[in-house]
Each structure stands twice: as C-alpha cells, then as structure tokens.
C-alpha cells in the first residue's frame, strides 16, 4: 500500500476504481443540479459525497475519509433532507426564466470556467507525486493530530469559536419569541362557560357504532353519526370512516374473511405441531 502511494502512477486497481467511481461522482453531481425535486438532488449529492470519501481513503487520507462519511453524508446531508422536508418536498423549481436566456448563459459560463480550470491544471507541471508513505508512517490520525495541536493550534481554537458562533446564530435565527401569554387551565374553563359551548368532556368515538376505533364517529340515538366524537385532527383531514350500513357490512365481510384465514392458519399450526 505505502509503496504504491509513493509511486508516480497508481496501481491498476486504483485506476479502475477511479474511472468507475469518478463516473459515478460526476453523474451524481450532474443529477444534483439537474433534478427537479430538492429531495432527489440531496440524495444524488449524498452519493457523490460517499464516492469522494472513498477517494480520500484511496489517497491516504484515512481520517478524512471517515470524517467525510460521518460529517457530510451523516450529519450535513441529513440536515439538508430535514430542511427539505420542513420547507416542502413538493415545491419543485419553477421553470419560468426571470431573465431571458439566463440558463444557457449560465451553462456557457460554467463551461468556460471549467475549460479554464482544467487547462490551468493541465499546464502546470504536476507529474511528480511524492506519496504519503513517509507522512503516514506513524499513523494518519497521529500525524494529523501532531499538526493540529502544534502548527495549526490557533486555527483550531478559532474553529471552536466559529462553531460556537454558528450554534448561537442558528438558535437566534430560528427562535421565535412568544407574543402572548399562554392561557391557564382556569382561564380556559371560564372562557368555555362564558361562551356556553359544550361544557362536559367530548363524547368518546365509536361507542354506539359497531367499532370503537378513533376514526369512526359515534352514532346518536337516531342513528346519525356525531362529528363531535371524532378528534379535531382527523376531522380536519377528512379521515372519518363511514358508518353507514353498507360500509359496516363491508367491514364485517372483511373481518369474516380474516377470521377464516386465521382459523386456517391456526389449524395449520396445529398440524405442524402434531
């Protein structure tokens, strides 16, 4: 391994890995910018980051490879997905261009920039690779630690300050002050009496119907379902189950069938035990 890292050109295995995974990384990056939905973009980016972690490992940066997986794909991408879910999964990008031809111009700029960068790298004389065999001799993590706590110790300390600032900043940005005081239980009770609305607790769902699941409305004495018995959340979502005779007979048939099947499976179990 270390002998290969010191070589001018890599082993066939690494070349093979580079061409396969490099293609995957570029496809993932392209999908990140071309996918219409933010969730798909995030997943493609996570794939690219995992591939990059493998490249770090192949380049002898063992610590960074693991940190890449833990911090980037584990923490940052999950934070992205969390925010995508919070902000709205279905919110696709609008396809209407506000500046005419902006997309093509942007793509052209990107292409030019890429050509410039790659030509710059191509013109530089970067053909001698020393390899990390000597630097990693005492262990990659030990080498990094020795550098961080000696040469880069001030940068490390400032990084700590930066992280604290970022944490406080995130809390300040997303924190919301409560504008009015929450009502106490006594005040709520008084309000209810004053408004004269339904003083006792709400009736339980499904008690008088065939089922007592929470999404089935209880029946009033005249046979009509009472909306009050179903909790507000289900009512707003429109998830109240129908309690008409037809629906109930369907349910009964379904239960009959499942009971039949269960009996059969019980018999099978008995036969097996015999």
């Amino acid at each position: 391994m270390s002998a290969q890292l010191a070589a001018y050109s890599t082993s066939t295995g690494e070349a093979f890995q580079f061409w396969i995974l490099g293609t995957v990384a570029v496809i993932g990056a392209l999908c990140t910018i071309l996918m219409k939905k933010a969730v798909h973009s995030a997943l493609c980016l996570a794939g690219t980051m995992v591939v990059l972690a493998v490249f770090y490992l192949a380049n002898g940066a063992y610590f960074l490879g693991i940190v890449q997986i833990v911090v980037y794909t584990g923490a940052i991408m999950m934070l992205f997905l969390f925010v995508v879910m919070l902000v709205g999964v279905t919110a696709a990008d609008s396809l209407k261009e506000t500046i005419k031809g902006q997309r093509w111009l942007a793509a052209l700029c990107g292409l030019g920039f890429g050509v410039l960068l790659i030509a710059g790298i191509g013109n530089a004389s970067l053909h001698q690779f020393n390899g990390l065999a000597k630097a990693n001799a005492g262990g990659n993590v030990e080498g990094l630690a020795a550098l961080i706590f000696t040469k880069y110790v001030f940068a490390f300390e400032i990084t700590g300050a930066l992280l604290i600032t970022a944490t406080v900043g995130a809390m300040v940005l997303t924190h919301r002050e409560r504008t009015e005081r929450a009502k106490t239980q006594r005040e709520l009770a008084e309000q209810r009496v004053r408004e004269g609305k339904h003083l006792p607790p709400l009736p339980a769902p499904g008690v008088y119907a065939r089922h007592n699941a929470v999404d089935i409305a209880g029946l009033l004495p005249d046979g009509t379902p009472s909306e009050l018995t179903v909790m507000q959340t289900l009512r707003e979502r429109g998830q109240i189950r129908d309690v008409s005779g037809e629906a109930l007979s369907d349910l009964k048939a379904l239960e009959q069938r499942s009971a039949d099947r269960l009996e059969r499976s019980d018999e099978r179990a008995e036969e097996a035990s015999k």
């Binding site: 001018y8 050109s9 890599t10 690494e14 070349a15 580079f18 061409w19 490099g22 990384a25 570029v26 990056a29 392209l30 990140t32 910018i33 933010a38 973009s41 995030a42 690219t48 490249f55 380049n59 992205f80 925010v83 995508v84 902000v87 919110a91 990008d93 609008s94 902006q102 997309r103 942007a106 793509a107 700029c109 990107g110 292409l111 920039f113 890429g114 960068l117 790659i118 790298i121 191509g122 970067l126 053909h127 690779f129």
Partner: peptide, 28 residues
C-alpha cells in the same frame, strides 16, 4: 493512471457546482 486525474475530477465537480449555483433558483 497519473494521480493528477484526481485534480481534474475536482475541477469538474467544482465547475458543475458553480454552474448549479447559476442555474438553479431553489435556495436549498
């Protein structure tokens, strides 16, 4: 394979990212 290919790949990914910043309008 020359290890300098990793630099080319980095350039390519950076370019794709920069183009994405210019093209996309969803902040995330």
């Amino acid at each position: 394979m020359n290890p300098v290919n990793y630099l080319y790949l980095a350039c390519l990914l950076f370019t794709i990212g920069a183009t994405g910043v210019l093209i996309r309008r969803n902040a995330i």
